[in-house]
């Protein structure tokens, strides 16, 4: 049963998909598409966990995959969609820099991660790729947060970072104890809800969802 996984490089494909969805964020112009990219990213993450569960035959990983789909793949996207409707923001992402520059920087980030982590030999095999991709996803998430103006895109960037972090943890430990995974997922869910409320509040207070206005708060 494990043969097809290794034979067809399933894990590498899924990891590459994770990275691609993250990179695609640089080029997407509508907030709704960003949410879709995130949803895809989450589903890929869940399927990666599922595949590894098949490979190792550990039952708690199935549960982890299920919970990931449920929270990151369904609940959070639904919630984000609601916020976007509620805030009635324009649908453009409004980045500070254009797509070409943005994509090039992302490529540089991925390259930096690959070169700097190539010598980190504490793990071997397919998981090494997963680790590098996870860190790359994390950095791209952070980069998205830096270059986007709207509060909602910030939240999506943060969620990408979180996915990257989850993946990194997963690749290093081959599945954390269920209770920790549950805790992390619950944390993210709460975090998104709180950030959503904040975003709405920022919109209400500054009559804009742009975070630029926040520096008027400086003393």
């Amino acid at each position: 049963m494990n043969n097809w996984i290794e034979a067809y490089f399933v894990i590498d494909f899924i990891s590459a998909g994770l990275l691609l969805t993250a990179v695609s964020m640089n080029a997407l112009k509508r907030i709704e598409s960003c949410v879709k990219a995130y949803t895809l990213n989450s589903w890929l993450l869940a399927s990666l966990i599922f595949v590894i569960a098949l490979m190792n035959g550990e039952t708690h990983l199935y549960a982890a995959a299920g919970i990931t789909v449920l929270s990151k793949g369904i609940l959070i996207p639904l919630f984000l969609g609601r916020i976007i409707r509620k805030m009635r923001v324009t649908h453009e992402v409004e980045p500070y820099i254009n797509n070409v520059v943005s994509l090039s920087i992302s490529a540089v980030l991925v390259a930096v991660v690959y070169t700097s982590l190539s010598d980190a030999v504490f793990i071997e095999g397919f998981l090494k790729n997963v680790l590098q991709i996870s860190i790359a996803v994390l950095l791209i998430g952070l980069f998205i947060m830096i270059t986007r103006r709207k509060a909602v895109t910030q939240v999506i960037g943060l969620l990408f970072m979180e996915n990257g972090l989850f993946l990194a943890g997963f690749s290093l430990t081959s599945g954390m104890p269920t209770i920790i995974e549950l805790g992390v997922l619950f944390d993210v869910l709460m975090g998104v809800i709180i950030l959503g409320i904040f975003a709405v509040q920022i919109r209400r207070t500054f009559a804009s969802a742009d975070l630029d206005r926040l520096n008027t708060l400086k003393g």
Partner: peptide
């Protein structure tokens, strides 16, 4: 350093992370 811009603060974090990756990784 404290410009009040959220993006700049996040930029500090990114810069730190990349520096750590480059110099701490090896």
């Amino acid at each position: 350093l404290q410009s009040g811009s959220l993006h700049l603060y996040l930029g500090y974090i990114l810069a730190t992370l990349i520096l750590l990756l480059i110099f701490g990784g090896n």
